[in-house]
Each structure stands twice: as structure tokens, then as C-alpha cells.
Amino acid sequence: MARYRITPEDEAFVAEFLSRPFGYKSPGLQRVLNLMRGQGPEGKYVLIVREPYRRWGLGRLPARRGDPIAEIAGIEYLSLAEGERDVFLRRWRDLTGSDAPASTGEA
């Protein structure tokens, strides 16, 4: 069975996610998100709640369930949307080997 991979045609979905990280997703974006979320846990970026509804940090999952999450020092988000956007961009880079297209206007 062929496994879905991110292709250059999927770059349009970056702008869609960055403009609206919550709510309805187009089928194409949902396919990209399923790929990002379906990867094995080792090294996957995740948000860490530092203060509920106010502050989040960034971490990476361990290879084995139950092992501690590796927190990345110096990274803090003051909105959940900001954190979700950054995790999306980091996972994109991990899967494609390159940064998301700059034409999205988001960082």
C-alpha cells in the first residue's frame, strides 16, 4: 500500500492552517494533518501547558510512552493558536526537510 507523502501541491494547505488553526479543515489539509499526527512519537513536537489557557511551552515526545517529554527551553507561547501554528511549521519541516513556503505571510 502506498503511503501518502507531502508534495509541492500541498503547500497551499500551509496558508489555510496558519490562517485558521481551529475549526473546519479542507479534505486536503486534513490529509496533511493526519500524516503529521500519525507519525511515530519519537521527536514529535507537542505543546506543554504551563498555565492553563494562558501559557504554553514546546516539547518533543520520547520514543517510549511514559518516558519524560523533552522540554525545549526558551520557547513560550501566549496563545494556543500561536503554539499550534509553530508546531505545524516544525512538523512540516521535519516531514519535508524544508521550511514551509514564505508566501504564507506567517512565521
Results as ranks from 00 to 15, higher is better:
98 S>I: 11
30 Q>V: 01
48 I>Q: 11
57 G>W: 06
1 M>I: 02
24 Y>M: 04
43 G>S: 04
70 A>F: 12
75 I>K: 07
24 Y>S: 06
23 G>R: 11
46 V>Q: 09
46 V>R: 10
35 L>E: 13
43 G>H: 03
30 Q>A: 14
106 E>D: 04
9 E>I: 03
70 A>M: 14
102 A>T: 09
25 K>D: 08
16 E>F: 00
36 M>L: 13
59 G>I: 03
56 W>Y: 14
87 V>W: 03
88 F>M: 04
28 G>C: 09
102 A>N: 06
42 E>H: 04
101 P>M: 08
17 F>I: 03
61 L>D: 15
32 V>I: 13
61 L>H: 15
48 I>R: 10
6 I>R: 02
27 P>T: 12
44 K>H: 05
93 R>P: 05
98 S>P: 01
41 P>V: 02
25 K>A: 08
75 I>E: 04
50 R>Q: 13
96 T>L: 10
100 A>K: 02
51 E>C: 11
24 Y>W: 06
20 R>M: 12
17 F>W: 05
81 A>K: 02
97 G>F: 10
54 R>Q: 09
33 L>W: 05
38 G>V: 01
50 R>S: 08
64 R>N: 15
85 R>A: 08
22 F>D: 15
46 V>E: 11
71 E>W: 02
22 F>V: 11
85 R>T: 05
91 R>D: 03
14 V>D: 02
67 D>G: 12
93 R>D: 12
10 D>P: 01
65 R>N: 10
29 L>K: 14
102 A>D: 12
20 R>D: 09
98 S>E: 14
32 V>N: 06
42 E>V: 03
87 V>C: 09
66 G>E: 15
40 G>N: 07
53 Y>W: 12
41 P>Y: 06
11 E>I: 04
38 G>I: 01
75 I>H: 07
79 S>T: 14
45 Y>I: 06
92 W>G: 00
2 A>V: 12
22 F>H: 14
29 L>I: 10
70 A>L: 15
